[in-house]
Design a binder for these strands. Structure first.
Lengths: 141, 141
DNA sequence: CTTGACCTTGCCATGATGGCAACCCCATCT
DNA sequence: AGATGGGGTTGCCATCATGGCAAGGTCAAG
């Protein structure tokens, strides 16, 4: 194997250092989200500090719920010294809105279910407002 | 075509009546969620009132965020006259908990993003706490 | 030099849904 | 009777982000 300095990591090490699974690192590379990793003579991918930092950026953005498409744009903005913070903010605000909508949808589901569950005895008798609620009209407002 | 009474619907009519797309009706049948539809001589699927009611049940359960697996169990309970309401309630409560967790996760994402967005000027300068937040340590607590 | 851990690629699967294609069937209009 | 259009049938592919498995190559340590 080519000599590897301490700063040059294999995909497994980069995975551990970034919190992104090796599988996903390869996937991100395959869809062009991140630049193809450099390779050793024996075709192993290698990652330097900057590459690992990029992976960590992706991991954090995923953690915030951004899609791959959005992360692609975020990465471009991150690496663009001439970016306008307004562009970043627009992306973030759009994502906040989407989160809000999904939260609202799920909160509504939860409320309906709680309403039904509250009136269900939860014993061994078959009578059940939950099932009847789903089957009948009074389910979804 | 075989004579069809007003109560016997084609898949398109059943779709309109139940709110489930024809594609999804076929899919539900293919995965065994619902019983295979009866067929006309010319192999068209037919749906009677009961079948449509079942599809509506599925649609409502989907609307409440239940997965196909869970809906399968709900359907079985619905059709089981000897069910214990406790079983239904357990399913519902488990789903409520899952919703709660997903809501909490997304609420946390939203809070982090809002915290970052609040401090972003959103103008044409590159300086941006959002990007820096994602790139740096202070992003995810 | 063997062994075990790790790398490579590639394929398959998920869950729920949509789209397209090729073909068949039925009803209605000319 | 024949054309036309709408809707049925199947099957395959795509999504999005991820995991798993398999077959083969490579490296480091015993």
């Amino acid at each position: 194997m080519a000599i590897r300095s301490a700063e040059i990591l294999t995909i497994g090490e980069a995975s551990a250092a970034s919190g992104v699974s090796a599988k996903m690192i390869r996937y991100y590379e395959s869809i062009g989200l991140v630049r193809p990793a450099t390779r050793t003579e024996s075709n192993y991918r290698t990652y330097d500090g900057k590459a690992v930092e990029t992976l960590r950026f992706v991991a954090r953005a995923r953690h915030l719920g951004f899609s791959m498409m959005e992360i692609g744009r975020l990465l471009a903005l991150w690496q663009d010294r001439a970016r306008a913070s307004a562009d970043v903010k627009a992306l973030a605000v759009k994502h906040i809105d989407e989160l809000e909508q999904r939260i609202a949808a799920m909160t509504a589901m939860k409320a309906t279910l709680e309403h039904l569950a509250l009136r269900c005895h939860g014993d061994d008798r078959p009578d059940c407002p939950i099932i009847e609620g789903i089957a009948g009209e009074e389910c979804c407002h």
